[in-house]
Write a protein that binds this DNA or RNA. Structure first.
Length: 144
DNA sequence: TAAAAACCGCGGG
DNA sequence: CCCGCGGTTTTTA
């Protein structure tokens, strides 16, 4: 298993992967020893198709969460959907979608930042600021 | 271990 | 404002 990071503003995007399969993505305040896959660098530089070719472990299987993650992955770059909308498509309730987003092992690859509340931004860990930065990045506005 | 309670990145009443 | 929804985590025994 390989691990590395690339910078994003005040943060560093840490990635754990093997070949094209990504098992973990995290936002930390310090860099890793090595670099992240170039796809992440491209995405964070504003390339809409930067992440193409990478898979996430989170989307495998038939669990409710896996189906939620697949539904979220289907949300196009630069667009948003709501917790309730995803819930309806998967056959569960909004609250569970929120839980799945909170526990998302591979943010960015499963673009949980594109899921917002019906009226409001919804949440994001470790910082809501990151969700806003990612959304404005996809709108073509570089915050960082 | 197993069962119960608490906890939520929500939404509708 | 309050309560149910359903899946996860924490607490309790």
């Amino acid at each position: 298993m390989r691990e590395g990071s690339c910078p994003f503003g005040l943060w560093h995007v840490h990635v754990a992967w093997e070949d094209d399969l990504v098992s973990r993505v995290r936002f930390l305040r310090y860099p890793a020893a090595g670099g992240a896959p170039e796809q992440f660098t491209r995405y964070l530089a504003g390339d809409p198709n930067g992440l193409a070719g990478l898979r996430s472990v989170a989307t495998e299987g038939e669990s409710v969460f896996a189906r939620i993650y697949r539904a979220v992955q289907a949300v196009p770059y630069g667009e948003t959907t709501t917790y309730g909308e995803v819930a309806g498509r998967v056959g569960t309730v909004p609250r569970v979608v929120g839980t799945a987003m909170r526990l998302n092992p591979t943010p960015l690859l499963v673009p949980c930042h594109r899921v917002v509340a019906k009226d409001g931004p919804g949440g994001f860990s470790p910082a809501l600021e990151l969700k806003q930065a990612l959304l404005s990045l996809e709108r073509g506005k570089r915050t960082y």
